[in-house]
Structure formats: structure tokens, C-alpha cells
């Protein structure tokens, strides 16, 4: 059996959090947090894209795991989803970078 403690010297990915020492002394926020309209809409879009066969939940997870560690912990739960959905739709060519750039400019 390896003597190393899992999470200290093993090359775990940053989302792979089971037993990780860094968070063991962190309190859990047990208070209820109401979901925002943004949260619900992101969640709904993910479901719609899944049901339509455009992206799988596995692809959502891959995109979340690809977020750099500092950003991963800074973004809210559904902000990670929004980023991952965008990433996946770009990768699959459902939307293009040019279209997204233009759409972002229209929002401004």
C-alpha cells in the first residue's frame, strides 16, 4: 500500500475533492440558498440541450473540470455550468467563435 496520503502527493485533478486536506477544516455553509433566475435558466438550458441530444451531462462535467483551478473555485456553481455549456457548444460547432463574439457585442 502506498504511504502517501491521497490528495497530497497524488496528481489528482482539482475537482476530485474527496478527503482533500485543504478543505478538511473548512466549515460547511448549511444555510438555505435560494436559486436565482440565472441559476434556474442555466439548469433548464442544460436539460434542454441534453434532451435534444446536443450535449451530454458528461460533456458538461468535462467542461467544468477544464476550468482552471482558481477560476473553478471563484465561479458560482451555475457560472461554471454556463462556461462549460459555452465551451461545449463551441467545441461541437453548434455555435462559432465569430457568432459568440458578435452576440457578446450586441449585449454590450
Amino acid at each position: 500500500m502506498s504511504a502517501a496520503e491521497p490528495g497530497e502527493s497524488t496528481p489528482r485533478a482539482h475537482h476530485d475533492l474527496g478527503g482533500v486536506p485543504k478543505f478538511l477544516c473548512e466549515a460547511v455553509d448549511t444555510a438555505p440558498h435560494a436559486l436565482s433566475d440565472f441559476d434556474r435558466r442555466v439548469d433548464a438550458l442544460r436539460q434542454i440541450l441534453g434532451a435534444a441530444g446536443i450535449m451530454r451531462v458528461d460533456e458538461l462535467r468535462r467542461g467544468i473540470e477544464a476550468i482552471p483551478e482558481a477560476t473553478y473555485h471563484r465561479l458560482s456553481y451555475y457560472e461554471r455550468w454556463a462556461r462549460s455549456i459555452t465551451d461545449t457548444l463551441l467545441r461541437k460547432g453548434v455555435i462559432t467563435e465569430a457568432e459568440l463574439t458578435a452576440a457578446l457585442e450586441r449585449l454590450a
Binding site: 491521497p6 490528495g7 485533478a13 476530485d16 474527496g18 462535467r61 473540470e65
Partner: peptide, 10 residues
């Protein structure tokens, strides 16, 4: 994309 947590490997 791995669904086997790091802590059970080995």
C-alpha cells in the same frame, strides 16, 4: 474525464 476518485486508486 475520470469517474474513479483519486482516493481509491491503487
Amino acid at each position: 474525464h475520470i469517474r474513479t476518485p483519486h482516493y481509491v486508486r491503487g
